[in-house]
Design a binder for these strands. Structure first.
Length: 994
RNA sequence: GGGCCCGUAGCUUAGUUUGGCUGGAGCACCCGGCUGAUAACCGGGAGGUCGUCGGUUCAAAUCCGACCGGGCCCA
């Protein structure tokens, strides 16, 4: 700040950020800080690995901020961070889809023609395409992790650890093959897990049709409702509810129809003729003609069966059942032993079995099938329904549910343990534990783990012709079982691993690898141990210890949080994490959802450049991030302003003031006498307590609030009230005490801010301590967390709060008296007994009050007679019918004069400022003021001159000639003008200027 | 249809767990003041059916119930 290029005032947030980044990078501060103190208590953390084959959006800065606050706090506290590694999620469909697009590949057949090995190589090459952009975003928001040595889910050691985990599950009977109905993406030609599906629900229009199923042995038709006409060719059964009543309704247009009685109003006008009523049970067994004959005959097919799942609120109470295409359908089909019929190929296209839609994709078959049914008079009603439907979370294609072979993690067998371990974790906000997350656990379905894809961790299971599985848990085991050493630099991906044939562990017959990769969420859920190549290499991972802290967005209740818990429970039988801090998504400034697919994305790097990382951090931290937060240029502009901007300005004031007399930074904690100083130190300690408690509790919100209030107090009370002390000569003890107190406080404030606003905090710390951004050791982030400071003086804090309330009362009285603050008033009277707290401030308190309100005398009158203070002479404030305070209304001529002289002084100060002068710049002044005002000025000439650093300071009666150096004002009807000239130019360039 | 969360001034919100003074504050607006760091600050004004209705209570933004509206998750 001593540089002459830098003018007075605080630097912009961007300047602060640039300066700090340069310092950090030049001296290597982050690398020293990442891991915390090597011998400190362990703080277990894992960064959830983002997929980085695409660019980040602004929303990704929010979890980074919340993680970073806690990590910085822990480091300053002296903890060892395990681990401080960044991680990248490298596998999976997002990467594959990018390569498919690049080469115009449209199906798995085309990928195989292209060559799986080459395809995977390209996936590997592009998986981290945007890692540098992500890293840059972290850099500019001040998210400190080790990005030089990240863990990567595609690395061989990582995969080996995942294999170890899978083998552990396999040995415990928790990894099995099954044939179930699963969500399936026909474009990607693979199954998805339920938590992947959960990410992709959206509004869609589908047909809603009611179709006649004619009964074989009665002149009646069953009315069957469906929203998926394409499943009708696969129909094998109709399901009725056993206990509901069904009605047989006479229809003029054709045969009688059967439907649930309570569905009648939805289909027919009141008064429809009901010819019979019967229960579902009585319907059971009735045979019908299926709408299409594709599936062909089979035992038990095409009859009414019973089940309780039939909905009472939708449809006809008679449900079409195609066992291939729905979980309930499958269950009922299996129970009734009618087999399955699936006319679709792996791409969801109809084959030969259903001639009229052969070659059509499943959804495209709907209108053709409906047309055919209508032509046969079987369609009773056909409408369009808007409802939520699942789409592929990565390629956006409509999903279907189909029965298919898949490998499962049997999460349904460990539900109790999942629930128990979840109960031992702390969620912020707390309702997630038993709410959204807890509910999901109790309903946990088996985790469909396998994917029929290419770029992923290969499922380490080999199967012989007999179907015996052999699970491999390490590369050594693979080599041993296969009887041949693995090639040097063995890469476990497809196709290399597919070529390895093993003897079956059960029967010795040759076994081939199951051609699946696994769900990428198993990769990321393994991160806490796989990043250390556990259990193959020594490392800090402790199988008994949950992570101390994770933080992600709310959607991860179905994603990473979930897979972490499943894996921790199934393998280590413990909770996955002690504390989860979960935030809601960001909204655009307009309140709309931030969408990555719809363009209009706020470019995070540009915004971070423009407003600085601390602005966006503060935006998240000072609001309730458990609710959606709106972000945009306008909100960011304001975000850091109030608190961080004010702090920068206090520091700028302090620096300039200290530089003026070359006062050194405070060393240790000062022990000042002045009440104002002691009050500030007490407030500082109170804030330290609050911030520490908040961060100990993992919730930065109260910390941000406490810091904001401290900065407010610092700026609007401490500095303002201390101004005369700061202007005093440098050898005055009071000046030194004020300086030391402010210097010390600002350095401590910097440490308290460091976890939340690391750039601003670093700048404050360096500037206030005069360390000049030179030495890594001097970084605030290596400075340690503030220890307990001076004992709080709660009486003083309360007394000062009361005093400030009295100032507000006084201001109101002045307003009512109609006298501007610049004109001193004679007397302020306080009525009644002072509180003990206020009493504690002593005479100094009253002086301070008088000073602040510009009143010559403040007295306290215990027992007041209201009549002694008539309205004409006094403005009186009453509360509850009793007078609280009174101020004398009318200033004497002397007071008036003093006020006017002050007014002139103020305008001259204003002029100094407008001329861009610094504290120590001297000026030459000639003031023209007539009559009494002139006399008043003359009487105060010497003090005015020294205040204004004006020499000479002349006062004349005659008007000044107008000119460029002359300003003139009208002060309460008196014409005043002044010529102000810089005495000695401080800046050579300014001196040579125009 | 089920679960969870939310609804306080034009906007952002504190207060709700544990019922109690006149429901605070910031931004924006109007009037006034102050200002040798500040896009700062201070006083006054205007702006509130505390989503609606009902209940409990001496007392309800706060507790209970129903409903309305919004969001998210799941069927």
């Amino acid at each position: 700040m001593a540089d002459d290029e830098e003018g007075p005032g605080a630097p912009s947030p961007t300047e602060v950020q640039e300066r700090v980044l340069r310092y950090w990078e030049a001296t290597g501060v982050p690398a020293r800080a990442y891991g915390g103190r090597p011998d400190g208590p362990i703080f277990r953390f894992t960064d959830g690995p983002p997929g980085v084959n695409g660019p980040p959006h602004l929303g990704h800065t929010e979890p980074g901020t919340l993680k970073d606050v806690q990590l910085r706090y822990r480091r300053m506290r002296g903890d060892r961070i395990v681990s401080a590694k960044a991680g990248w999620d490298c596998h999976g469909l997002p990467v594959e889809i990018a390569i498919e697009k690049k080469h115009g590949l449209k199906s798995k057949r085309e990928i195989e023609a292209f060559g799986v090995e080459a395809f995977c190589e390209e996936c590997r090459a592009t998986a981290l395409d945007y890692a540098t952009v992500w890293r840059e975003m972290a850099r500019r928001q001040g998210y400190w992790l080790d990005y030089d040595r990240p863990y990567r889910t595609m690395d061989a050691p990582y995969i080996e650890s995942v294999w170890w985990a899978l083998k552990t599950l396999f040995d415990r009977g928790l990894l099995e093959k099954g044939h179930y109905v699963l969500p399936y993406c026909p474009r990607c030609e693979t199954t998805l897990s339920s938590h992947e599906v959960a990410q992709g629900y959206r509004e869609a229009s589908d047909p809603s049709v009611t179709v006649r199923f004619p009964l074989e042995d009665a002149p009646r038709d069953l009315l069957v409702w469906t929203t998926t006409p394409w499943t009708l060719p696969a129909n094998l059964l109709v399901v009725a509810h056993p206990d509901r009543e069904y009605a047989v309704v006479r229809r003029p247009e054709g045969r009688d129809v059967v439907l649930a009685s309570d569905a009648l109003p939805r289909y027919f006008p009141e008064g429809a003729e009901v010819v019979a009523r019967l229960t579902g049970r009585e319907l059971a067994g009735a045979a019908y003609r299926p709408p299409f004959s594709a599936a062909g005959p089979g035992p038990g097919r095409y009859r009414v069966v019973l089940d309780g799942f039939v909905s009472a609120t939708e449809g006809t109470g008679l449900v079409h059942c195609a066992p291939s295409f729905g979980p309930d359908d499958y269950r009922i089909g299996a129970r009734e032993k009618v087999g399955v019929f699936d006319p679709l190929d792996s791409r969801g296209v109809f084959g030969e079995a259903v001639g009229i839609v052969r070659g059509r994709s499943f959804k495209a078959a709907d209108p053709i099938l409906l047309h055919d049914l209508a032509a046969r008079g079987l369609v009773v009603r056909s409408e369009t329904l808007r409802h939520t439907y699942p789409f592929c979370w990565r390629c956006d294609h409509a999903l279907l549910y189909r029965a298919i072979d898949s490998w499962f993690v049997r999460t349904s067998r460990i539900t109790d343990a999942l629930v128990r371990h979840n109960r031992a974790t702390r969620w912020i906000p707390p309702y997630l534990r038993d709410g959204r997350f807890g509910n999901f656990l109790t309903e946990a379905k088996d985790w469909a783990l396998s994917r029929s894809r290419y770029w992923g961790t290969p499922l380490p299971v080999w199967v012989c012709a007999e179907g015996h599985p052999t699970c491999v848990g390490s590369f050594a085991e693979l080599a041993e079982r296969s009887g041949a050493p693995l090639p040097p630099g063995f890469d476990p991906h497809r196709v290399t691993v597919d070529r390895i044939v093993l003897p079956c562990a059960t029967c010795g017959a040759p076994s081939r690898r199951e051609p699946y990769t696994i769900d990428v969420w198993f990769d990321s859920g393994s991160a806490p141990f796989a990043q250390y190549h556990y259990p193959f290499e020594p490392g800090p991972f402790d199988p008994a210890a949950p992570l101390d802290y994770v933080s992600e967005a709310i959607d991860q209740t179905r994603g990473w949080f979930y897979t972490l818990l499943v894996i921790a429970t199934a393998i280590f039988d413990r909770p996955a994490f002690r504390v989860s801090l979960t935030h809601e998504f960001l909204l655009e400034e307009t309140g709309r959802k931030m969408s990555k697919s719809k363009g209009q994305v706020l470019e995070p790097l540009a915004l971070l450049d423009r407003f600085g990382g601390d602005a966006i951090r503060w935006l998240f931290l000072s609001q309730d991030f458990t609710a959606p937060i709106r972000v945009g240029p306008t909100t960011l502009e304001k975000a850091g302003h109030r608190t961080l901007g004010t702090l920068r300005n206090v520091v700028a004031f302090h620096l300039e003031n200290a530089a003026a007399d070359r006062l050194p930074p405070a060393g240790s904690a000062p022990a000042p006498d002045a009440r104002l100083d002691r009050w500030l130190l007490s407030r500082l300690e109170a804030t330290r307590e609050d911030v520490t408690a908040a961060l100990e509790a993992y919730d930065p919100r109260p910390a941000a609030t406490a810091l904001r209030e401290l900065v407010d107090d610092l700026s609007t009370w401490y500095v303002r009230r201390s101004r005369p002390r700061f202007w005093a000569p440098a050898d005055r003890p009071d000046r030194r005490a004020a300086h030391a107190t402010l210097s010390y406080t600002l350095a401590e404030v910097a440490r308290l801010f460091a976890p939340l606003a690391p750039f601003t905090a670093e700048w404050v710390f360096q500037e206030v301590r005069g360390t000049r951004f030179e030495d890594a050791e001097a970084s605030v982030h290596l400075a340690g967390w503030p220890a307990r400071g001076a004992e709080r003086d709660r009486t003083l804090e309360a007394g000062m709060a009361e005093l400030r309330a009295l100032v507000e009362v006084g201001r109101e009285l002045r307003q009512r008296a109609g006298v501007r603050s610049r004109i001193p008033l004679a007397e302020l009277v306080l009525f009644g007994e002072a509180s003990a707290e206020l009493e504690g401030l002593g005479a100094e308190g009253l002086e301070l009050l008088g000073d602040e309100l510009h009143v010559k005398r403040v007295i306290r009158v215990p027992a007041a007679a209201r009549a002694n203070y008539p309205e004409a002479a006094w403005a009186v404030r009453e509360e509850g019918g009793r007078p609280i305070a009174a101020i004398s209304r009318t200033p004497s001529p002397e007071l008036l004069e003093e006020g006017l002289a002050r007014e002139v002084a103020r305008r001259l100060q204003q002029a100094r400022k407008e001329l861009g002068l610094r504290y120590l710049d001297r000026i030459r002044v000639t003031v023209s003021a007539p009559g009494a005002l002139g006399a008043a000025l003359r009487a105060r000439r010497s003090s005015l001159a020294s205040d204004l650093l004006a020499e000479p300071f002349e006062i004349v009666a005659e008007p000044l000639e107008p000119g460029p150096d002359v300003r003139s004002w009208d002060i309460d009807g008196t014409r005043v003008s002044a010529r102000i000239v810089r005495a000695v130019p401080t800046d050579p360039r300014a001196g040579a200027g125009p």
